[in-house]
Amino acid sequence: MFRDELHSLGKVIDDLFAGTGEPDCTGTLEEIILAWRQATFSAATNECLKRYYSFHLEGISIHSDTLSTFTGEHKALESGLLHLSETLVNRYGAYLEDDLRLPSLYTHAWRQLRLKEISALRPAILNASLPAGLKDCIGSYFDAYLQPGQACLYTLGAIRYFDKLTGELEKLDFSSPDIEQQVDVLFLHLDFNHLHHLALLQARISKNAEQMGQQEKLRYLLAERCRFGGLPVQTRYRYQADWPSLRSMLHNWLSEEIVRVREQSPACTTPIQKLGLNLSVAQLACLLKLLYDEGIFCTENFSDILRFFSAYFRSKRQENISYGSLSKESYSTGQVTAAVLRDKFAQMIKKIDRHFFPE
């Protein structure tokens, strides 16, 4: 049965406020950390451990706030609470939800450490061949977390995202002539769905397209939608977890722009030369579902894959493949269809063995 391991620590803080001097809390801290370690190796379920560790992180936050109002000597106790916070986050972070607020002692120490790291990164960003707006966007993001008085921002998820993003930025070569493209790829991959960044992308695409003719503009917007849609995006991190992803917001905006351009130029058409496949619609649908299930496509939206193939490919019997028929076949594959694909895969494996693994 789990219990409130911080109860004894609360008594230590009460004694401190009672004016008995700063007590030695070393033994108390060791007992708490030992209890946490034992809980990890207990028979408790993951959900139970999540509640257990979250409860203690919230308790440390309360004690941290209480201790911040004490004006006397309390460095040892403050250091102890910080050590407990770091132990929870670093060792048992897998059990902690991203929306948990971090103790003020922890965020203060984190901010001081990151200030030193960012001070070395800022000059590289400022001297890079990046648009001024993008530099301002990155700088304002840094300042929002590194300036005091922003306690509402310091959730565990926000801290994790900041550390991940800045860590990846430090790996970039800011002297490279294509640094803007590198930042685009990185921000999309890490889902930096900052509205300022989205607005900058929209403004840049609009500016590039404004001097183009209607057909060229349409091709450009379609290419940009395809380019951003094809870049890989991880799902672990997101700047604003409760907002749509950067890729989805950009995709929706580009789609609206494409519709607008087409409506302005009814006669403007972009002929599509469909690529023929020696597969039936059912076989193509089954193949796409298999590839999707194996994670071959860099998207989680299976519908987008079906729409793409229905728009740009034709089967051996049909010039036009409808999205509806492709979707239906992907979820109702029969044995005959599966057998055809199995034979094709078997032939491929034989070729691989013959060419790359000769006996």
Rank of each mutant, 00 (worst) to 15 (best):
A209M: 05
A209Y: 00
A209P: 02
A209D: 03
E210D: 08
E210M: 15
E210V: 14
Q211S: 15
Q211H: 07
Q211V: 06
M212Q: 10
Q214M: 07
Q214T: 08
Q214C: 14
Q214E: 12
Q214H: 10
Q214Y: 00
Q215P: 02
Q215I: 12
Q215H: 15
Q215F: 04
Q215D: 08
Q215M: 12
E216M: 05
E216H: 09
K217Y: 02
L218H: 02
L218E: 03
R219M: 11
R219H: 08
Y220I: 00
Y220L: 07
Y220P: 01
Y220F: 15
L221V: 12
L221T: 07
L222S: 08
L222G: 13
L222F: 04
L222I: 00
L222H: 12
L222K: 13
A223N: 09
A223S: 14
A223M: 06
E224C: 15
E224L: 01
E224A: 07
E224R: 07
R225M: 13
R225Q: 14
R225T: 01
R225W: 04
C226R: 07
C226A: 13
C226I: 01
R227A: 13
R227M: 05
R227G: 09
R227D: 10
R227T: 08
R227V: 03
R227I: 01
F228I: 11
F228W: 13
G229Y: 14
G229C: 10
G229S: 09
G230D: 10
G230F: 09
L231H: 06
P232I: 07
V233N: 06
V233R: 10
Q234I: 13
Q234W: 02
Q234T: 05
Q234C: 09
T235D: 11
T235H: 11
T235L: 10
T235P: 09
T235W: 03
T235I: 06
R236T: 15
R236K: 13
R236G: 11
Y237G: 08
Y237R: 09
R238N: 05
R238W: 06
R238L: 10
R238G: 11
R238V: 12
R238D: 08
Y239R: 15
Q240C: 13
Q240K: 10
Q240A: 08
A241I: 14
A241W: 11
A241E: 14
A241L: 09
D242W: 06
D242S: 15
D242V: 07
D242Q: 08
D242M: 05
W243L: 15
W243K: 15
W243T: 01
P244C: 06
P244K: 07
P244H: 09
P244R: 08
P244F: 08
S245Q: 15
L246C: 03
L246G: 04
S248M: 11
M249W: 04
L250S: 07
L250F: 06
H251M: 11
H251W: 12
H251K: 09
H251C: 13
H251V: 08
H251N: 02
W253G: 02
W253F: 05
W253K: 01
W253T: 02
L254P: 00
S255E: 11
E256T: 01
E256K: 13
E256S: 04
E256P: 01
E257H: 00
E257T: 00
I258S: 04
I258G: 00
I258M: 05
